[in-house]
Design a protein around this nucleic acid. Structure first.
Lengths: 262, 262
DNA sequence: GAGTGGTCTAGACCACCCC
DNA sequence: GGGTGGTCTAGACCACTCA
């Protein structure tokens, strides 16, 4: 019996799928009240069914405008072991991306930010937030936080193209060594949902990265939010031990042990 | 003006937070209709606000039973570069986990599964699905798919403790080399939501792993679904090239390039 | 200002758990 | 069988976009 649930939104998916498939990419679907009437369900139930296709990236809802059918997405693929900016990944695979909604703020380190950067609270910080767009839509939202003295005002005006990492790598000082990146999942908060043009609460892949230079100093930490379906991140996991030692940062310790070695 | 949204569910969070904090871990909240009345909102709005705390892991809703306050979760932390089973990670950090809902199935490789395993379609396969629980709740759902001839019936009866990886590592043949793991996010489908005791559509971290032996043969591929908040996966991303060469599998190529080397 | 999706209400019935 | 969370309805108002 458990196979044949009588939930309206499940039965609705098939019919809604037909409507979506019968609509060309870029075209608008009927309004929600009209579509609900056509399909014989309440608007709430229709919206529940639409969430399914929206999470798959087949449709996109825009408040005040309408619901649109979107085409097949292009995918940004990358191995994670190499530290590179989204822009660099995109360039490497020949995909055109652009930056949007760049927001540079100056703020003072509170306890949490200070701890993440291994500096005292109260130090001045620079926060750089930006959106990465493919031709069709926003696909990532990136926030960098770093001590204000690392990047000068002049550099921000002249040689800043959006990526803090790329700027630092280009400059070569401080000499960047590696990033310790934590992988998480989070529902989009209202403000992030807005700039990403998704629904509040939709799942996003989150990388929380701490950037170290060759002396073990923390240079930057960042939150990177990625829209599912547009990225393919790979990591190689080996049974042999991979050695990463950071003598300058005893509290940074990858607790890895050898399971088996050949 | 954009700061002061007049959405009921936002204003409700503070008051609902008080209710949750005033309730001991393990205790039950009032029923939804009652709580909605007490807080002066409709049940739909209350449920919207509750989703926020549920996604943070502070409460847990169980159909037919009630809504419960849960304590601070224990976190499974691991670097990703080392390939090890969830059981091994848990044991290493002294956390007790148990296996649940083990389901072993035999099936025939369709086109997709055959392609993933690099074998012809029609070959017999073994599929092992299981749930990993901490003391308080399910935290991961793991599915392994592998050619049927790799593990014998006898082994399944006698030396199988739940982890395909651990069984193969223990046996030492085939000799496991590494796993290529893709990182994704997905909303929980109904069946997975059920075994994980979460809400349908909740975001899960997904690892799609392909397991190779030292000769480059594909041994197994797997889907691992992780509940956010209970795991802390880290990966080191270096500007120096990390060399992983797999001469036997030319189609497996990590397209990594050196950005900068010191 | 017209039209869209976003949110909210009040009430109802259903599926599920447990006694 | 009683009580819970899960879903659904019909209608309403609000916030947003764009001509």
């Amino acid at each position: 019996m458990a196979e044949e649930k009588n939930h309206a939104y499940l039965n609705l998916r098939g019919r809604l799928s037909n409507v979506i498939n019968a609509t060309k990419a870029g075209e608008k679907l009927p309004t929600e009240p009209l579509l609900a009437k056509q399909l014989g369900v309440s608007r709430a139930t229709l919206r529940e069914a639409m969430r399914f296709f929206e999470s798959k990236g087949l449709i996109r809802r825009r408040q005040g405008v309408g619901t649109f059918v979107v085409g097949i997405p292009q995918i940004l693929e990358s191995g994670l072991e190499v530290l590179e900016s989204i822009e660099t990944i995109a360039e490497r695979i020949g995909l055109q991306v652009s930056m949007d909604a760049l927001k540079i703020e100056r703020l003072i380190a509170d306890e949490e930010k200070a701890a993440n950067l291994h500096i005292p609270a109260g130090e001045p910080l620079l926060q750089v937030a930006r959106v990465i767009r493919t031709r069709s839509r926003p696909v990532a939202y990136l926030v960098d936080i770093l001590p204000a003295n690392i990047i000068s005002d002049k550099e921000l005006d002249t040689s800043f193209e959006g990526s803090v990492l790329d700027l630092l790598l280009k400059r070569g000082d401080p000499e960047i060594a590696y990033s310790k990146t934590e992988i998480q999942v989070a529902g989009a908060a209202s403000d992030i949902a807005r700039v990403m043009e998704i629904q509040r609460g939709d799942g996003l892949l989150v990388f929380i990265g701490t950037l170290f230079d060759v002396t073990g100093r923390v240079i930057d930490y960042s939150f990177s939010y990625f829209l599912p379906g547009y990225f393919k991140f790979n990591v190689l996991r080996s049974v042999r031990q991979v050695q990463f030692v950071d003598a300058e940062n005893p509290d940074f310790k990858e607790d890895q042990k050898v399971i088996q070695s050949s």
